[in-house]
């Protein structure tokens, strides 16, 4: 009885918050509703007995992916009036994409078999959820599993390649270089004659090179 009640609570909140993701005017609120939706989906997984999937959903989507979403959306300066401008023009494209996705969903659901013939035999009772998954993933579906890993690896390397660029104008500290410095490389002990000073000469250590090989960051022009 309690389980049924919780199923309907989770399901109702899930559907409502999924609707609010689309309807919310503030993008930060939309992301927060998305997180709420993930959370309730995890609750439904728990009710279905898939405790491992529920925890992984929370760890991966709520704990990592959505944090980055929120991070980015909070930093963006989104103007709502500007977003409204393009609505009329892009609405047909959006509707077309939505229609295709919906048609695919219908096609999939129509052809769905509840118990596919090729599926692995249900594991013996007494196994925990994670053990059962491990037994299937690492044996029967090992190649598919590895292929998923390779796709993710390629995506990750792609993201790094797209965003990594050496910024020539920033001065970075290289800790290894700092630690490798030795007093003998940088310090010269001078013994000037009293009263005559250094005579304006600057002493350098034998192998001295300028500390900053890169040009200094561009400075703002000061108006005089």
């Amino acid at each position: 009885m309690i389980v049924t009640a919780f199923f309907y609570i989770f399901a109702a909140i899930l559907v409502a918050s999924a609707g609010m993701v689309v309807a919310a005017r503030n993008p930060v609120h939309a992301v927060l509703f998305l997180i709420l939706a993930f959370f309730n989906a995890a609750g439904l997984f728990l009710i279905a007995g898939a405790e491992f999937l529920a925890m992984i959903l929370v760890i991966v989507y709520v704990g990592a992916v959505a944090v980055l979403f929120l991070f980015v959306v909070m930093m963006l300066d989104i103007r709502f009036d500007q977003m409204r401008e393009g609505l009329q023009r892009y609405a047909p494209i959006g509707a077309a994409v939505g229609l295709v996705l919906f048609a695919e969903l219908v096609a999939t659901l129509a052809g769905l078999k509840i118990a596919p013939v090729e599926a692995a035999a249900p594991a013996a009772s007494g196994l925990t959820n994670s053990a059962e998954l491990g037994l299937v993933i690492y044996t029967r579906y090992i190649f598919l599993f590895q292929a998923c890993g390779i796709v993710l690896l390629v995506a990750m390397i792609g993201a790094i390649v797209l965003t990594l660029r050496e910024r020539v104008s920033s001065r970075k500290q290289d800790i290894a270089v700092q630690h490798a410095r030795h007093p003998a490389d940088t310090l010269v002990m001078a013994d000037p004659v009293a009263g005559s000073g250094m005579d304006g000469q600057i002493l350098r250590a034998p192998g001295w090179t300028p500390a900053l090989d890169k040009p200094a960051p561009a400075r703002l022009e000061t108006t005089s």
Partner: peptide
Amino acid sequence: DLNVGTLYLFAISSLGVYGILIAGW
């Protein structure tokens, strides 16, 4: 006494960031 207790703890501790992020925003 969950069978996935370790994952549960890891999930909850990874949610802790939301309170701080939401507070900041």
